[in-house]
């Protein structure tokens, strides 16, 4: 029984850590894209107009992630 409780507790902890790692990774990707995409793909004249909407959408995703992280905050 003790082992089972330990296993359940540990798997919950691992699951939580993986979730946290996934959020951090997602944020890093969003941030990296904010630098990479406008300076590579969107530099061509035909795609230049996409730079503005791209940065806006990228930031909105970052904001959504921040909302998600803070949803755990409680008094």
């Amino acid at each position: 029984m003790g082992k089972l409780i330990y296993f359940l507790f540990e798997s919950e902890r691992i699951r939580r850590n993986m979730k946290r790692a996934l959020i951090i990774l997602s944020f890093l990707i969003v941030l990296l894209l904010a630098y990479l995409v406008p300076y590579t793909i969107l530099r061509s004249e035909s795609l230049a107009w996409l730079t503005y909407p791209f940065w806006c959408i990228d930031t909105l995703i970052a904001i959504a992630l921040m909302f998600y992280i803070t949803s755990k905050w409680r008094d």
Partner: peptide, 16 residues
């Protein structure tokens, strides 16, 4: 140009 938007929105991302 729009580089100014990127500059300011990266600040917003820094709110992380």
């Amino acid at each position: 140009g729009v580089g100014a938007l990127g500059f300011e929105l990266i600040y917003m991302m820094g709110l992380v």
